[in-house]
Simulated assay, not measured.
Amino acid sequence: MTSTTVTETGAPAGQVKLRSAEDGVLNWNVRKTEGLHVIPSFTDKEAERTWAKQHMAAAFRTFARLGWADGASGHISLRDPVNPDWFWINPYAKHFAQMKASDLVLVDHHGRPVQPTPHKVNAAGFIIHSSIHRARPDIHAACHMHSPAGRAWSTFGKGIEMLNQDTCMFYKNLAVYEGFGGIVLAEEEGLRLAGALGKDCWNLILQNHGLLTCGSTVDEAAAYFIALERACENQILAESAAANGIPKKFVGKEEAEYTCKCTSTPGCVYMQFQPEYDLTVELSNGKVLE
């Protein structure tokens, strides 16, 4: 005869019975996540503009800290909360590690500065981001960098495989822009890039070029970029092992879809960037917010 020991929670020994989120400090309630993943909302659009610009500047410094500053290449755009027909973009040839909120440039969809600024804007960056913002009103921010792993994996013109839990956030949420039309200095090329995203995709691999990620907040776009760059690095490592005869095991479609639904909500992805934001602000002694 076997006996079962029951714990104080009423669960058999060796099993764990989780308390609800309301009953403790657990950060996950499978039935309700709204209280955990909260994106700030604003009634004052000027206050929202200030907040969003600070997070955008912090994204640049975070990318620099992660080693993705590459000369004058790379850009982030942010749809202006006050006037959604305008968007913020980084000044040309300003090092990401020195970026402050006050450095960002506000332009209209013709590339004209809306506010006085001593800075110039990267023409290719403007065309890419202007095309995306016009094509997708739901996209409020976009990040495009020539990061090492993304740039390397883009040479294959392929998406990434569902190799682990982290890559599952890109399940049916990643497109590939095949072909390379050179530096994006023509509006037609910008429109083709925007078209490659389609109506509901948030992330894009640009063949022979790099990565582009989008979001409803700049935090979401930045978190997607960090995750996609690491997914590309992971893919390259896995391909190297597979080339030596080690077979890959893939996450199943059902499991990948479920994991994506859990990890790629706007609030969840937004929260993924908050530790990086807090660290960036601390390391800059608050200068990034100026």
Rank of each mutant, 00 (worst) to 15 (best):
L174I: 07
K249M: 13
A227K: 05
C214E: 03
F96A: 07
L66C: 07
R230L: 09
G190M: 05
P116S: 10
V269D: 08
I246T: 14
F156L: 15
F156Y: 15
N203E: 10
I183Q: 07
P116A: 14
E239R: 15
L18E: 04
H75D: 09
V218F: 02
C268V: 15
R230H: 12
N90D: 11
H144N: 09
L206P: 04
W51S: 05
I183H: 02
A222W: 01
K45M: 10
G125I: 01
A64L: 11
D103I: 07
Q15Y: 12
E188M: 01
W28G: 00
H37T: 10
G74H: 03
E257K: 08
L191D: 09
R19G: 13
A242V: 10
R19T: 13
K253S: 13
I160A: 02
G195T: 06
V30P: 01
N203Y: 07
G74K: 06
D70T: 07
V251W: 02
L106N: 05
T155E: 09
F250G: 02
V251N: 06
A243K: 15
V184K: 00
A141G: 08
S102E: 14
H144D: 00
A123T: 14
E254H: 07
H129Y: 06
I139P: 01
T5F: 12
A123Q: 12
E48L: 02
I76K: 00
I236A: 14
C168P: 02
C260A: 11
S77L: 07
T43S: 12
N90Y: 06
A241K: 10
V121H: 04
L26C: 04
R134C: 04
G159F: 11
Q274K: 12
R61G: 07
D108L: 03
A223L: 03
H109N: 09
W28H: 10
Y277Q: 03
R136V: 01
S264F: 01
L174W: 06
K53M: 14
L211N: 08
Q272R: 14
D219E: 14
H146K: 02
S102M: 05
G267R: 00
Y270W: 11
E48Q: 15
H129W: 06
S216V: 15
K248L: 15
Q165C: 05
A256T: 10
A227G: 03
M1K: 11
